[in-house]
């Protein structure tokens, strides 16, 4: 089973990289772009095939290492 973890900054946490991307898009002529937030995607291959167990395991991974829950949210996507 594969898991994809989307990590994004929480609302209220300043994202200077997102801001810089927004400015760059503006200078390239893309108008009408509002707030830009940058995150990261982590793909994992898992030996576990049970969806509930896999989700619980990845949840632990996010809590312990993959995300810093002080500043980041995470969303887990599983693919058989």
């Amino acid at each position: 089973m594969k898991a994809r973890v989307h990590i994004t900054l929480k609302h209220g946490v300043l994202d200077p990289q997102g801001k810089a991307i927004g400015h760059a898009l503006g200078s390239l002529g893309f108008e009408g772009v509002g707030d830009v937030r940058q995150g990261k995607v982590i793909e994992l291959e898992l030996a576990e095939n049970d969806e509930a167990k896999a989700r619980a395991e990845v949840e632990q991974m996010c809590q312990k290492l993959l995300a810093n829950t002080v500043i980041e949210n995470y969303a887990i996507e599983l693919q058989a």
Binding site: V13, L14, P16, Q17, V70, I71
Partner: peptide, 11 residues
């Protein structure tokens, strides 16, 4: 220690 250290505001 609590909190987080983010990228410098100036990048």
């Amino acid at each position: 220690l609590p909190g987080a250290l983010l990228k410098n505001a100036s990048l």
